[in-house]
Design a protein around this nucleic acid. Sequence first.
DNA 1: TATTTGATACATCATATATATAACAAGTGG
DNA 2: CCACTTGTTATATATATGATGTATCAAATA
Lengths: 136, 136
Amino acid sequence: MRMELDLGGEQPLYQQIRDQVVLAIATGALREGDHLPPIRELAAEFGIHFHTVNKAYDLLRQEGFIRLSRKSGAVVHTSRSEADTEVWQHKLRLVLAEAVAKGVARAQVEAAYRAVLAEFEHGSSEDAPSQSGRDA
Amino acid sequence: MRMELDLGGEQPLYQQIRDQVVLAIATGALREGDHLPPIRELAAEFGIHFHTVNKAYDLLRQEGFIRLSRKSGAVVHTSRSEADTEVWQHKLRLVLAEAVAKGVARAQVEAAYRAVLAEFEHGSSEDAPSQSGRDA
DNA sequence: TATTTGATACATCATATATATAACAAGTGG
DNA sequence: CCACTTGTTATATATATGATGTATCAAATA
């Protein structure tokens, strides 16, 4: 997976990493069982400290997106039962509120919604192979 | 409008205030021309410093949701040309990515989406929604 | 003039972010 | 056994952000 970080951006680096991974999972660039790069390796790639990457990975683990172990490193873990739906539903409500409050037409909101879901429609078996770190 | 702040919460107070106002506008609780409470008054109501409220109002002004003046105070300003669509579209993409990455069924995402938009349907202008919605 | 309004300019304190260095623990392979 | 990689943890430091405190200013108004 390719990742882009905005050094000196408004958003924290660990949050950016976390978001990129979530997006990669949603688009299918990362799938169940895929390995994320080791924290030191990813840190070196971006020229940041491994603690920052570690924080991002730890956050992803807390949210249930990956599993961490000294044995297998960071592994994508998508098979999740219905968990905290309130979290993303609240975020969805807020972002839609922003659009509506800004007077964006419902049709345009709908179009954006469809476009995003279409982007995340990676069926079940296609996509490009994930070339990240090591892989089994 | 009623507002609830989570003191000591994870999110900054000024961000919470900003979000509450945006939500109020989306739901129709706040409309074009409505006045927000003076910063000192709102600060006193929540027991926080007026600087915090001032920061929230300033953020809302930057985003174009309200207008500030010593004359009229803080006034809701919804009639706005569709400008930065990239901002909320990017947020929408991320929040939908979270849901998809967590394995939430598309039907459930759709239901949440419909429910939120229905909540924001305060019979203003815009285009009518496809009346094929159902409950969550 | 006195009051209300947002706007600013300082300051302090606490927390968050990011880096730096070091060490530890578990697993792998020469 | 030893070297290496992996995530994990512990300090420490520097900077940025969040929130408060105090004070003042500027424009509008009663």
